[in-house]
Simulated scan of single mutants.
Amino acid sequence: MSRLRLFVWLLLLAHLGVLLWVAAHLPIGPHEAKLFFTGDTLVARLMHWGVTCFPDAEFLSIRIPFLVLHLINLYLFYRLCQALLNDETEVLTAFVTFLLLPGIVSSAVLATSTGLILALYQAFLLLYIKKREWLAYLVLPLMLYVDKSSVVFFFAMLTFALWRRNIPLLAASVTLFAAAVAMYGIEVHGKPKNYFVDTVALYAAIFSPLLFLYFFYAMYRILLKGQRTILWHIAFTILLLSLLLSMRQKIPIQDFAPYVVVAIPLMVHLFFRSYRVRLPEYRKPYRLAAVAVYAVLVLNTAILVFHRPLFLVLDNPQKHFAAPFYLPYWCAQALKERGIAAVTTRDGKLAYQLRFYGIEPNGGYSLSKKPAPGARSVTIRYKGRSIATCYVSKINN
């Protein structure tokens, strides 16, 4: 076993261990809680399956199905890299890059449809690239039932089939695109407003800033001079579509990003090709650039994973990106310490989170974030530091 392969195996084991730890300690989020109590989607069913099978695993129970999906996606991505790249160094580099992406790490521990999208999309790509097209066509209808992200995917597939003049694929894409639009519609709403910078910032958070900069360059370079494969076409089309739409309205980035990140092998191949055509004395800038990109990537992912200490150093802990996960949990703990088992709140998502922790809705107490006459303050603390304050008042019946 080569040293690089051994390093990747050790990194993979560390990655899985850290993800298990994060999944076991991360409280349920507002979207997850609402989905758990009101949703009838595949994601909601997977959450309930996890709780049924692992009732004593607390937070881990709702996340186990998505960790399993993550393992499947890592395997599929590795196989995809092997199908696309001939060099082992390129395969392992692409795999490690995918492994460390903040967007992939977060999708592994959160109850979202991203894992399902990635699994079906990568299965389709593998079958299509290996010339098992009719099996690939059987995967396509499954993607229709995951969520509304299938609209943009089938649109990209339609444009690819038109470009390649692939009649069977075109017929399947048109049919499924029409079905997706009929099921989910096309979201064009609100007063036109430019969210382009916000969307770029979200992609930078999913990839890490420097990596996304090079990824965008790689996609553009392939457009000009490279081989425009189905993987490149779908990734570039959806990336471009998301940026164009963001000039008018805020887009749900989770509907676009899964189809974009899978193109990581193309970026890695372009880098190594550019690196190897140069004489050794001219390769140093490439090595330095790679070190900078991966240093920022590792730092971003480390902050994402080991985020709790930030509650102790931020001037305003309530602006912590994980505050919507932790504050309701700590609030529930504080309420239980005061013997309060049921509260009424106007915040619907908060009510679902509190319900998950055993604080029932429509109780004899009112919970709010603002003080009211006669209300008792409940201080939410983490390691002795005051993080936030909520107010509880008795409801007079």
Rank of each mutant, 00 (worst) to 15 (best):
R3D: 10
V8R: 00
L11D: 07
L12I: 08
A14H: 02
H15K: 09
W21L: 13
V22M: 10
A23M: 02
H25K: 10
G29F: 05
K34S: 15
L35V: 09
D40V: 12
A44Y: 03
L46S: 04
L46N: 01
E58L: 14
L67R: 04
N73P: 03
L76W: 07
N86S: 13
V91D: 01
T93L: 01
A94G: 08
I104L: 12
S113Q: 04
T114M: 04
A123P: 09
V139T: 07
L158A: 10
A161G: 11
P168R: 06
V174K: 01
T175P: 04
Y184Q: 08
Y184C: 06
I186N: 09
H189S: 14
G190V: 12
N194M: 07
F196G: 00
V200K: 02
L202S: 12
A218M: 09
M219H: 03
R228L: 09
R228Q: 13
W232L: 08
I234R: 04
I238L: 11
L239R: 06
L240W: 15
P252R: 02
P265R: 00
S274E: 14
Y275A: 00
V277W: 08
V277S: 08
V277M: 08
P280H: 06
R287I: 00
L288I: 04
A290H: 06
T301W: 11
L304P: 08
V305G: 06
F321N: 10
F321C: 08
P324G: 13
P328A: 04
W330Q: 05
A332D: 09
Q333E: 15
G339E: 08
K349S: 14
S366G: 14
L367H: 05
G374C: 07
R376A: 14
K383D: 07
S386E: 15
Y391F: 13
K394M: 12
K394F: 14
